[in-house]
Design a protein around this nucleic acid. Structure first.
Lengths: 175, 175
DNA sequence: GCAGGTTATGGCACTCTGTGCCAGAAGTGG
DNA sequence: CCACTTCTGGCACAGAGTGCCATAACCTGC
């Protein structure tokens, strides 16, 4: 509901009062549901993060790590076909509005942490590998979304797989 | 000067009034020098960005792109030895304080854009390569800083080179 | 040194976000 | 119906950031 206002009038020109009035609640109540105006656009993020963690921890330890990451990430960000427009609109907002780009860093940090933790389990004792994998997963996710909003005819999932293939580092030999 | 206050009392617990009083200026004047409280920590960013662009555009077009990027990035972020503590402190702030992480996205976007523009010049007609290189350069820069603040004994420059080597995609064959 | 204009500074009032506190409405179980 | 919990709204507040205007500091040329 609020997302529609953001798209129609711009995020910055939509005040919390506007949203509250449109939603038929008070300003104070809005802040009980969403800690921040920007959080309206990140309502699905906890679920996506949970799916990512789930997909990573479900991976077969004997399988090499790259296909496992590709599968977990694409599954975590999959959406039902009916929500395609909705997801695209949200991606345009998050990647295009500075305040939302900024707010997204908190979500990104959790993605990085999840990927890094998985990588640490694959290469115990290696301090570099988890950091690189964390940033690679995040960079690929962002790159895929960036590519998607400029080429909306294609599928996000394909872009994700392609970007991950280009950005994930090779698996170092076990120590 | 303000950075010292941030380190001593925390970024959030330091108000603009505090900074203004410590600097002997008025609150209003502070906002003339820095559009935002967070911008205090990004005073060097325009110069770093300029050095990055410069280094990239100075690269020999016959050289493959990866070493050119490594040279440009490491040169852009090089600092005199006397500023090492200062730079490390700033990195800890920017990577550790949520508000600063968030504000940094604006700077990151410019880095990505500079790297992407360079990559576009190397692979005209390829829509994927610039996006990937932009995100790879940024991811490697962040990964290097993240590694550096947890292993401050090493050199940032070495970490940058290592991360870029792991994250930069291979150069696709010319079309 | 002085009148001219330009630039830097300070103060004031305002909007907006986000928060703490408290009062009252709404729902729930006995 | 009553007690208890939960949801909601209003109010006041702090802090960031901005627009406006008055004034102080700094050059100019004369």
């Amino acid at each position: 509901m609020a997302q529609r206002l953001f798209v129609a009038h711009g995020f910055d020109r939509t005040s919390v009062d506007d949203i509250a009035v449109a939603a038929g609640i008070s300003r104070r109540t809005f802040f009980r549901y969403f800690p921040t105006k920007a959080d309206v656009c990140f309502a699905d993020s906890p679920a996506e993060l949970a799916r990512l963690r789930e997909g990573l921890s479900a991976a077969d330890p004997r399988e090499s790590y790259r296909p496992a990451v590709v599968r977990a990430v694409t599954a975590a960000l999959r959406f039902p076909p009916g929500e395609r427009e909705w997801a695209l609109q949200r991606a345009q907002l998050v990647l295009g509005v500075p305040v939302l780009q900024a707010h997204a860093t908190q979500v990104y940090a959790q993605w990085r942490a999840a990927a890094a933790e998985f990588a640490r389990g694959r290469q115990p004792g290696d301090d570099v590998f988890p950091v690189v994998v964390g940033h690679a997963v995040l960079a690929a996710t962002l790159a895929a979304h960036e590519y998607w909003i400029t080429h909306p005819a294609g599928d996000l999932e394909d872009a994700l797989a392609q970007m991950l293939d280009l950005l994930l580092p090779p698996e170092p030999p076990p120590t």
